[in-house]
């Protein structure tokens, strides 16, 4: 009996020790960023990076980073992009999934495979030719163009929706059709509301992706005076006129904050959503 107790205690120690260690490693790089962001340039030069700042109310770095990287505009743009992309990609993604799941028609399998294959294509390598297309459409330096592009490059959300539809009984549709509903009506009135969990999943996955996307944003939204996004605002700190680490860290923290706040507020939904994707995926 005693031995079992010992074993249990030992296990508990191992368990919490590893958990603490894992969490420590996960936050350490970011915590150091926070520390550095609160140091004055002189303090930064003189102290070890792990030494806590003298004052936690030294906001100068944040003010500078906010101004230099034009973050007010960046946040505005990112919010617009986020809302539009999420709205349209969820709408079109779920519509496509509905069609693919509910109707048998020639080409159904082909279309599924086309989407699947698309997810294997190397996105970075194709930007050369994508750029030519964006250019000929006149969508360089256009929020609209970027939003359309971001809506189009998504495969995972379609799969999540398809999987979700599989679990919604077809008899529901049939009943509605009997009542004189059109197929459009079935989708918008009956099924879309039922999709809520899947929509949350997609919002999270896609939302994180869109918010943090920098490669294409940098490529297609070049006029940073007007079209900077939160992720590309960080480019301000690179290059020949780069910046001190104090400002960089402050900038990094600023870009992370909204994600952090949303995360803390909607923790449950986020975990639930991801798990949903997992179980179905």
């Amino acid at each position: 009996m005693n031995k079992a107790k010992m074993k249990k205690l030992l296990w508990a120690i191992v368990k919490y020790a590893t958990l603490v260690f894992g969490s420590f490693v996960s936050v350490l790089p970011v915590v150091v960023c926070v520390i550095t962001a609160f140091k004055s340039p002189e303090e930064y030069a003189e102290t070890n990076v792990m030494t806590l700042p003298k004052s936690w109310t030294y906001f100068e770095n944040f003010v500078q980073a906010w101004k230099q990287a034009n973050m007010a505009l960046a946040f505005r743009n990112s919010i617009i992009i986020l809302i539009c992309v999420l709205f349209f990609s969820i709408l079109t993604g779920s519509m496509l999934a509905y069609v693919l799941n509910r109707f048998k028609f020639p080409g159904n399998g082909l279309i599924r495979n086309l989407f699947l294959f698309a997810s294997l294509l190397p996105g970075i390598a194709m930007q050369v030719s994508v750029y030519q297309i964006m250019y000929s459409l006149g969508w360089i330096n256009s929020l609209f163009g970027y939003i359309v592009l971001m809506c189009g490059t998504d495969v995972i959300s379609i799969y999540i929706f398809i999987q979700f539809f599989e679990n919604i009984s077809v008899s529901l549709d049939e009943a509605a059709i009997m009542d004189g509903c059109t197929y459009f009506g079935v989708f918008f009135r009956i099924l879309l509301p039922l999709l809520k969990p899947a929509i949350i999943t997609v919002m999270i996955l896609k939302g994180v992706g869109v918010y943090n996307e920098y490669y294409m944003a940098n490529l297609y939204l070049q006029n940073k005076n007007s079209f900077v996004t939160v992720a590309t605002s960080l480019f301000k700190f690179t290059g020949p006129l780069g910046n001190q680490y104090n400002y960089i860290c402050a900038g990094v923290i600023l870009t992370m904050l909204p994600a952090l706040i949303v995360f803390i507020l909607c923790q449950k939904q986020i975990y639930g959503g991801l798990a949903q994707g997992a179980v179905k995926g």
Binding site: Y135, L219, N225, T238, L241
Partner: peptide, 19 residues
């Protein structure tokens, strides 16, 4: 003035856009 941080990188593209 519009400042471009990564000027060398971005300007050629900007030229083509006309903007």
């Amino acid at each position: 003035y519009e400042g471009i941080t990564d000027y060398a990188n971005d300007i050629t593209t900007r030229l083509s856009t006309g903007d």
